[in-house]
Amino acid sequence: MRILITGGFGFLGRRVAGALLERGTFRGAPIDRLLLADRVTDPGSPLTAHRLVETVEGDLTERLPELLAEPVDAVIHLAAAVSAECEADFDLGMRGNVETTRALLEALRAQTARAGGGSPLPLLLFSSSVAVYGSDPALPLPAVVDESTLPTPRSSYGAEKLVCEQLVAEYTRRGFLDGRVARLMTVAVRPGKPNAAASGFLSGIIREPLAGLPAVCPVDTGLRVALASPPRTVAGILRVAEAERGPEPGRLAGGLPVNLPALTVSVAEMLATLRRVAGDAVADLVTVAPDPAVEAIVGSWPADFDHRRAAALGLTPDPDFESVVRGHLAATGSAITPR
């Protein structure tokens, strides 16, 4: 089993790679090679030193001939330009999301053609986003969203992800590959440095205060959001990738994307949890200063989901936000002594 992870040294890429190496199998078959492709790799990472890992650095589109010089059995496509940078730079978003994904799909299509078609087709897991949804004035979102809700994105990032979803569906329909789409909720709490995602503050207002640093909350604290912890997100990505197809329970029915399970909380509830777990001095490091640009993007995303499709695959949301915060503290070895 030869597996390619794009964005392999990103936040989720490292964790998906680590999970695969820990188990040593994918869809019941031993992993022989794990290719980690990213614009910038990390020679000091334990992943790089693993005997099954091969790293490829550079622009994904340019490196595809090298990456697919030998057939791959599966691709977990996590590489992407993120929301705020896509809104700021339209061309960057189209190139980093749509054009790169199309190039990857074409490369897998060529692999299938070289093999004479038929099964097994190369598997592609595309990581999409809750940002494909938005409330159009002519078609407001329902109170509860599921996979049958019409996506009407209100950001360039969401539009690009939706375009890619449709490309994956079409290449799958035509028999070029076996494509699946997992729509990710906002992942929090992300450790490490802030990124350019509009939703990055949802990690920052917890992560930075727990590290003794100030943080700014750029939205009204009454805003309700759909979150998933890093472990639940990684589990969802791999479950959708590995699921057998079919109408039976536990299988991937139909060709629709899967909305990964979400914990729905308000920003006020997040901050109250931080105060309860870490104390007043930590929570007081957060300042509320609304930013209309951030509110326009994040506020357009739905917060309440019907997750029956994910539940049929055995996926469940985080039980509460306190468990997410405590999980972050445990994973990062924080010096904060939780209450």
Rank of each mutant, 00 (worst) to 15 (best):
R14L: 10
R14M: 08
A17R: 13
L21W: 04
P30S: 10
P43C: 14
L47K: 08
T55P: 07
L60S: 02
T61F: 00
L64Y: 00
A69W: 03
V75H: 06
C86N: 11
G93W: 01
T101A: 15
R109Q: 13
Q111D: 07
R114E: 09
G116K: 07
G118H: 07
L125M: 14
P140R: 12
D146F: 02
P151W: 04
G158K: 09
L162P: 02
L162C: 01
F176L: 10
G179D: 05
R180K: 15
V187I: 15
A188Y: 04
A196N: 13
A197S: 15
A198W: 02
E208T: 02
E208S: 14
G212Q: 03
G212P: 02
V216M: 05
D220R: 14
G222R: 13
A228E: 04
L238V: 08
R239L: 01
V240P: 01
R245D: 05
G246H: 11
R251E: 08
R251M: 13
P261G: 11
V267R: 06
E269T: 02
L271H: 10
D280G: 04
L285D: 11
I297F: 03
P302W: 04
A303N: 04
A310W: 05
A311H: 08
F321K: 02
E322I: 01
V324M: 10
L329Y: 07
A331E: 14
G333T: 09
S334T: 11
A335T: 15
